[in-house]
Design a protein around this nucleic acid. Structure first.
Lengths: 233, 233
DNA sequence: CCAGAGCGAGAGCACTGCTCTCGGTGTGCT
DNA sequence: AGCACACCGAGAGCAGTGCTCTCGCTCTGG
């Protein structure tokens, strides 16, 4: 894939990657707020102004990191191997999301926390962002989920989403997937941002139980042999 | 209430309030990231160094704003008048939360988005933060919710929370309240932070439907349906 | 082989949070 | 009433930031 590139192009791609890597390193340590272009340049031994040859602004660098984070999370989720029993598969996918979030909390905060710059350009991020809910849809499709009554307006929206996703789910089932989707990220966000500190502070048990409850809400049959296969640490 | 205060104390309280008001104004316009102590001082016609007589750092100012925001949201939620039918009351409370969030999105992002400074001091904020989940608990107490099976570890946590909240709910019901709590804020956060942009973008219908579904999940009878199916533990 | 695009470095601007010092002023105690 | 002291506002200053501009050097396509 690097064939046909001039030396300059290769150097540019390499340096772009190095800048992102260093930025990601600082992001993981100090958070998005502390990320400084000058500090990145300093760590790379280059003048701060040279960074602007690769990223026109700090926000553009952050946007690039956001897209990469979406992709990393998407890959982590898609790496979950399908299991015949949808409830178990569901549990594995949810656990993968949480595991990635806990392991990369600043990157998670970058994509699911409050938008850091004035406003994010949504169009570059919407495609990689869709990978995670799509993974949830794939699990749901493996089960035979009942439909459900939906108000007309919502039904139209959901059917449009079904078209985008190329999914065979019924609108009622898709709506429930969307509900569990928001629940999952709400719970993980609360855990990461300290909102559970007074209640379900070590959130493992709460997370595990909630995922099961949401699976039941979705319509996935819950495997009552809980001790057979436990959650991955 | 201002009796017994010296002129200096009154002036100090007044200026402290003025600083917070101006900061809140800038927050609402530009977001937390853009909030600048110097700009606040400039707007108030004072030297930037004088601000530090009232707030020792920018983060302290933000923390004060966070606590105020929690209280404002708490008041908005507690201002919801109880209704005899719990499902309706529930709906009103959830709608109040969303309404406040939409009307004060930067303040909402400040408290429920990613923690802006290195790390926030949690202990000053945990008390006002508890007002919102407590309001949800109060609604749940008005209904006769069934219990549910809980793993031992989670059950212990939930019972501890019940003690803190002084609630008469069963552990199973309390756990479901916590699940719906995280769902509610996950959904609102997704709407505010643009995560629903490709799917349920005008989120009114989705929100409305989800609140009803979560009420049914909780065990509140839906007012429009004769006898909704209760949750299955 | 050479014009022009790409590139790195440095200086510089306007801004930030924060500190320190310096006078003036209101306050509580004697 | 007088006074010591804590409090307060202003200004200068430090270190850091994002970003721009200009200057030479180098690699590249024609």
């Amino acid at each position: 894939m690097t064939a046909g590139q001039t030396a300059r192009e290769r150097a540019r791609a390499e340096l772009t990657g190095a800048i992102k890597d260093e930025a990601r390193r600082q992001l993981a340590v100090d958070g998005a707020h502390q990320l400084s272009l000058r500090a990145v340049a300093r760590a790379l031994g280059m003048a701060s102004s040279a960074i602007y040859r690769y990223f026109p602004s700090r926000d553009e660098l952050l946007t690039a990191l956001i897209i990469d984070a979406y992709d990393a999370l998407g890959e982590a989720v898609e790496a979950v191997e399908p299991v015949a029993e949808p409830a178990l598969w569901w549990h594995a996918v949810c656990t993968a999301v949480r595991g990635w979030a806990l392991a990369n909390r600043h990157e998670y905060a970058l994509i699911f926390g409050s938008p850091v710059p004035g406003y994010r350009a949504p169009h570059d991020t919407v495609a990689p962002a869709a990978r995670i809910p799509l993974a949830l849809v794939r699990v749901a499709e493996a089960a035979d989920l009942p439909d459900g009554d939906l108000p007309a307006e919502l039904r139209a929206q959901v059917e449009h989403v079904l078209g985008l996703a190329g999914s065979t789910l019924t609108p009622g089932a898709m709506a429930r997937v969307m509900i569990t989707w928001t629940q999952l990220f709400g719970m993980i966000g609360f855990e990461l941002f300290g909102q559970l500190v007074g209640s379900a502070d070590p959130a493992d048990a709460f997370f595990d139980h909630t995922v099961r409850e949401m699976a039941a809400f979705l319509g996935l049959r819950s495997p009552n042999v809980a001790h057979a296969i436990g959650p991955q640490p």
